[in-house]
Design a protein around this nucleic acid. Structure first.
Lengths: 110, 110
DNA sequence: ACTCTCCGTAAGCCATGGCTTACGGTAAGC
DNA sequence: GCTTACCGTAAGCCATGGCTTACGGAGAGT
């Protein structure tokens, strides 16, 4: 599907712990950069850079409000990742089912 | 929940593109290290190192079969990540709902 | 026993990228 | 209009980690 690339970008983006922390805060409540930076152990420019990555990955959106930039999560980004996970989830279950069946056959053939 | 740490490890682990490629192949079909390395542009030791990270993240399991090590995906690892995503998914939807409501209120108050 | 295959680990190299400080630009308040 | 607050970008530093080659051990076949 077309969202595969976005899902991969999303996973790469959320691979960084600081970015996850920012993303979690934005998910709880939309907020400007300064507010986010105040509760984190990194500088404001660092948060700004992380938000850029998250935005390019399709996980958050940016909205200008005066001199502030309000960031909020983009549900489509999460949806793309869920789809990716579900695809491999079912593939994993199928593979596990084959494994279990083979185990059973071997036990019977002893 | 107790799975939060595992979910975070899983996201960190899948942040790397090579690791995602390995994980996708294992998800399709359980396989030994050599088979996985043959289809990838990196050396076998590199694959071995990635599998170690995936194993520590709870995303794959290891099974000794003679001189081979069969790797297969651990459904629990994917489940933990799904739970994490779903939690922030619903948080995102709630936040978005508040946003939409406020937008509506402002329009009414003009 | 010998060999051959399969694999994990160690050591080391080097690019990636996360962080900081410094700067400039824009909107709001007085 | 001047100052002040908020923010993105540039430049540069440095740790992290991904990759390779080299090595050693353990099981399978002859």
């Amino acid at each position: 599907m077309a969202n595969t690339a976005r899902a991969l970008d999303g996973l790469s983006a959320l691979g960084d712990p600081t970015r996850r922390a920012i993303f979690e805060r934005v998910a709880k409540k939309a907020a400007p950069v300064g507010d986010l930076a105040r509760g984190l152990p990194v500088s404001r420019p660092a948060v700004s850079q992380h938000l850029r990555v998250l935005k390019e990955a399709g996980l958050v959106t940016e909205e200008a409000a005066g001199t502030r930039r309000i960031y909020r999560v983009d549900p489509r980004g999460i949806a793309a990742m869920r789809e990716w996970l579900d695809a491999h989830w079912s593939a994993a279950l199928d593979a596990f089912k084959d494994f279990a069946d083979n185990q059973h056959d071997e036990e019977n053939s002893l």
